[in-house]
Write a protein that binds this DNA or RNA. Sequence first.
DNA 1: GGACGTTACTTCGCTAGCGAACTATTCGTC
DNA 2: GACGAATAGTTCGCTAGCGAAGTAACGTCC
Lengths: 178, 178
Amino acid sequence: MAKASDRDGEDDADRHVARWRDHWIDVDFDDEVEGAVVRMQHLVRHFREAKQRAVAQVGLQAFEYDTLHTLMIRDTPGHASPTDLATDLGVSPAGMTGRLDTLEKAGYVGRTVGKTDRRRVEVEITDAGADIWRQAMAIRGDAEDQVVNVLSKKEQIALNQLLKRMTLSVEAEGEQDH
Amino acid sequence: MAKASDRDGEDDADRHVARWRDHWIDVDFDDEVEGAVVRMQHLVRHFREAKQRAVAQVGLQAFEYDTLHTLMIRDTPGHASPTDLATDLGVSPAGMTGRLDTLEKAGYVGRTVGKTDRRRVEVEITDAGADIWRQAMAIRGDAEDQVVNVLSKKEQIALNQLLKRMTLSVEAEGEQDH
DNA sequence: GGACGTTACTTCGCTAGCGAACTATTCGTC
DNA sequence: GACGAATAGTTCGCTAGCGAAGTAACGTCC
């Protein structure tokens, strides 16, 4: 039943780390590293599930919302090429075609061939698409606020500084091999 | 006030937040909350991709490794019921059946019906399964170390304290509605 | 100015996973 | 002890996504 509440101070990650350490005394194992990774995974999973429930309220699936969202927050809001969206979203070109098929059929985006270069496709959001995205936006993010606001503003800033050091190292690393 | 973007350059999250803020001045929007969420998402995605590459070296897919791993680090290492594994891994019962089919066919786990309750199925790891899991373990986690060890031990502890406050709130919340 | 490589997207075959219906076993109640 | 409810797992139909091959348009170099 009440797992976290009766033994207060322990979260799933603590238990995870404890179990793991028991069986792997011989291997290089770092409690803090593993704890941080597991906790971030749990939090992200929570956010993903919360968002899924939220956008479902307006009749969108997670991947539809993600696509519309990525389409809207870019430098040219509401306009993009499939390739750009695919790289931003981290899906394959083939997957992007599928997503756009769904969104186009639902009437949330339109596809037009580029005039100068006819290989290119211009994805453009429709009024209906912008509308439902706005609706989803309005109810989305509450779960995130609720969790992150457990921390004070000061702590949030500290957290972001720590996280950012790591993301910067990841991004720098990713650029080496290209 | 020291925003995350002030000192050491911008990361993707900063750019993400900046773009979003531009188009959503009218909606309740919190830079620090959004930044933290996006950064954790990026890091988790990086870990997932890194692990995928790592376990592929021993010929495992991510979901196979995850399943073996969850099977091994539990209180009764190497033994579990499909339902337990499914809840731990966050997959549906049907999905679990599929995973176990794959692992069983590969010879990494065995399935036996419970003696006292014949509805139950006892999943047990095989020698081959334990073996390949150990191999995967050995090369796994390097990417995580590499990223998290950008921070000092002290910072890692601070990070974990912050993350833990959030995971505890998530876990407490999740138990209310059950 | 035509052959050849490149670019941008789509189609195809396949896989993992979900939700819902189904099967088999056990528990509870009278 | 028998019948209905509950539980554990599997089967089935379907969807999103991947990788590889395919198609169409553009660029280039001789």
